[in-house]
């Protein structure tokens, strides 16, 4: 369907872009790859007077790594680039797995990881791993920059902690502590190319005795925002990691999940899958932590 009419803006600096956001507050929308935004426009879910593309702003693309600090994924880094980035594969291969699990070839050639995060869909493929890895979102209003811990970024479906005049410029993913591992698990009605019915990101850090020092588990598509499996995380702390403790963590994660029934899956199925996928994610993460 033809898109609704808008004035197109393509600022060439961050300062200019943020000034436009301020000036046209309430009447302007941001587009990166546009794979969510153009669909929303086409469905008339939004009808902004202004559509502002980030594509002409310098220094928002690229993926870099600083030893001791971690990865920086620029706002315009495509899903495809994160999927194939040697840096990502070396430092945080589960981010590449999540990017690869997102959408189709064409959409991965267009869409950004940041767009997936800012779209703030509860089922977004790239969010659980970023939550598990305790990422931070860098937000800029053109003059000042701040870092938002990802745990504080999601306020509701489609709602983030960004202010109306802020642009998210990068995702910072801290380097994993020694003896840590990460996993991303997803299940969807069609085996491929589908929005997740449930997805889980998990990170675990072990001590020399094989006990859990840190556990972060993020559950997608089972609440209005991605949820932390707090009971499971607390239960694991200080425990020796065995098949039994991981199975119990899965059971506790299902207790924390608050899914609804919809076209993709029923509430009951989602709860069961949270249990299965959490246990599976922990097993894989522990495997990496031990190597």
């Amino acid at each position: 369907m033809t898109l609704p009419q808008f004035t197109f803006l393509a600022p060439t600096s961050l300062t200019e872009a943020c000034a436009l956001l301020e000036k046209h507050k309430g009447k302007i929308k941001i587009k990166a790859g546009g794979t969510d935004m153009i669909v929303r426009l086409s469905h008339r879910a939004v009808k902004p007077d202004y559509l502002m593309s980030l594509k002409k702003i310098p220094n928002l693309d690229g993926i870099s790594y600083t030893p001791g600090e971690g990865l920086t994924i620029g706002a315009l880094a495509l899903l495809r680039e994160v999927d194939l980035s040697p840096l990502v594969l070396e430092q945080a291969q589960m981010l590449a797995r999540a990017a690869h699990a997102t959408a189709t070839v064409q959409i991965r050639n267009m869409g950004t990881v940041m767009g997936n995060v800012c779209n703030a869909s509860p089922s977004a493929d790239n969010i659980p791993t970023l939550v598990a890895m305790n990422a931070r979102i860098v937000a800029s209003c053109g003059v000042k920059e701040r870092e938002i811990p990802i745990d504080e970024f999601f306020l509701g479906p489609g709602r983030s902690a960004l202010q109306a005049n802020e642009i998210a410029t990068a995702i910072k993913v801290p380097t994993l502590a020694p003896q840590s591992g990460v996993s991303y698990q997803k299940i969807s009605p069609r085996s491929k190319v589908d929005i997740a019915a449930v997805n889980i990101g998990a990170m675990i850090t072990l001590n020399d005795d094989g006990e859990c020092q840190v556990a972060r588990i993020s559950m997608g598509a089972v609440g209005p925002t991605p949820l932390r499996a707090r009971q499971a995380e607390t239960f694991l702390l200080g425990k020796k990691i065995t098949d039994e403790t991981m199975a119990e963590a899965g059971r506790l994660a299902a207790e924390d999940a608050a899914p609804i029934s919809d076209v993709r899956a029923s509430r009951e199925y989602r709860k069961l899958m949270v249990e299965v996928l959490t246990t599976r994610a922990l097993k894989e993460a522990v495997g990496f932590a031990k190597n």
Partner: peptide, 22 residues
Amino acid sequence: TGDCGACTVLLDDQSVSSCLTL
């Protein structure tokens, strides 16, 4: 809406959905 691929073209040699490209 990006689902079917009938509109696929190459932009700088990358396949994209022309229906979602301005």
